[in-house]
Write a protein that binds this DNA or RNA. Structure first.
Lengths: 245, 245
DNA sequence: TCACTAAAGTGTATATAGTACACATTTTAA
DNA sequence: TTAAAATGTGTACTATATACACTTTAGTGA
């Protein structure tokens, strides 16, 4: 018994990772090869995504896609926006690519965008038969379909959340240094922070807890390690009246 | 030539209005009448929404729905979330209702949620053959389908935005008093603000401009009128590093 | 026209958070 | 032993947030 795909509904996952310096995103190579000549007709990159099954809800579809790709379960997955422009699959390359699949997929596909934050970029990527790898977000352009736009929207949402609440600990190792945390914020938000002021801010967050442990194997004074405590966070989280002036 | 509807994709619009005291939402009466006995089988309320046409993008579908309903164009319409739970249409009432339409609509419909903010609640509602009216958000429950959930999500998004940036002027008359503005914020956010502190905050927003005009026809000292200047807002808007402690 | 009603409008003192800024400390590696 | 590299720390100043109560003004009706 085979599950049936919905021909006009897909989920795209923008999988973010952080390597200590830069914000990265997982992309899949899409190479169209002529069946006759075996020549490469074109080759480009897409976000990771797939159509959803008829018996699958949106969140499950997103989780499935990330799991098929990375083997990881229970990672952060947040729906951020849906895309339904009429021309989102109409570029000649996209049409040529989709032709391979006959009429399994419609020309009119609405896709629901999710982003996910991975514990680190040291994740084994397993997508049989396709090249998947990390790319620096700052250097990505010319993606297939409307994926430049989708990535842009995902970034906007990520930045908005970073500005307004303390998230993104999923992008750090479980035990991290304050410098790593600062670099993450700087990479995502595209800003620089003063070290002392950043630490002052962090010291007010009692859900960032100091461990009795230091870095090892570095050729300089080893930094203290910290951990994010979701427990403390959920308990002390509060809304604030902070609309901008 | 008739346009074709997509049987598994819809848009739902959560239309918010403010009456000076309470936050309201537009709901449509859904009454199922037995074709034989003409008895009312059930009657309940839904958000305003409809399936999308094959040649229509998501934003246009949302705009169409609000326009059909209120006659208004160019109002704020923001996509906030999409809903695709498998059981969202499976309540017996929902099934009975949908049976009327044969197989025009699938049992598996993903809906894209938009909310819109109306200039005031003094809007002529025109939806031929259906009762549409305003309900206090705080008193709404037991909506059809998963619309309680959709409304809840819309509210969360609205509140989140209200906390973090100054929006919602679309819910006020073009010329408004500071007390009206304060009441709006209190209604949406479910808080109370100190009048002097609220005004101090507002006086820092140079996009809330004082007019050379006062209220008329009130049995007390008439208040000064203010206007929102989108121009000034766009120019002075800036991001801020304000994640919570 | 006078007294009442109802909401508008206004200031200060205190506490908290944000910003700007520079040097000594600690470890490893050569 | 020294050099290199990143850690870790404090203060003065400015800006914003918060708590709090009385006077002013126009309309209404006796």
């Amino acid at each position: 018994m085979t599950r049936k795909l919905m021909n006009n509904l897909s989920v795209d996952c923008v999988v973010f990772g952080f390597d200590g310096e830069q914000l990265n995103v997982l992309l899949v190579e899409r190479t169209l090869i002529s069946p006759e000549t075996q020549e490469v007709i074109f080759s480009d990159l897409t976000l990771t995504g797939y159509h959803i099954y008829e018996d699958e809800d949106l969140d499950s579809a997103a989780a499935r896609i990330v799991k098929d790709l990375t083997g990881l379960e229970n990672i952060v997955l947040e729906q951020f926006y849906s895309f339904g422009a009429l021309d989102r699959l109409l570029h000649p390359n996209d049409q040529a690519w989709l032709e391979q699949f006959g009429d399994v997929f419609s020309n009119r596909v609405v896709t629901v965008g999710y982003y996910s934050l991975l514990p680190s970029t040291n994740v084994k990527i397993i997508l049989k038969g396709r090249n998947v790898s990390w790319y620096k977000v700052s250097e990505v352009k010319g993606l297939a379909y409307d994926h430049d736009h989708v990535l842009q929207k995902a970034l906007e949402h990520l930045r908005y959340k970073f500005w307004h609440e303390p998230i993104g600990f999923e992008l750090l190792p479980m035990k991290f240094t304050l410098s790593q945390m600062q670099k993450l914020y700087e990479a995502v938000l595209g800003t620089q922070f003063d070290k002392r002021n950043f630490r002052k801010k962090v010291s007010q967050m009692n859900y960032v807890v100091a461990l009795n442990e230091r870095q090892t194997g570095v050729a300089h004074k080893p930094a203290q390690l910290f951990m994010f405590s979701r427990d403390v966070y959920e308990k002390t989280r509060k809304e604030r009246f902070d609309f901008f002036v």
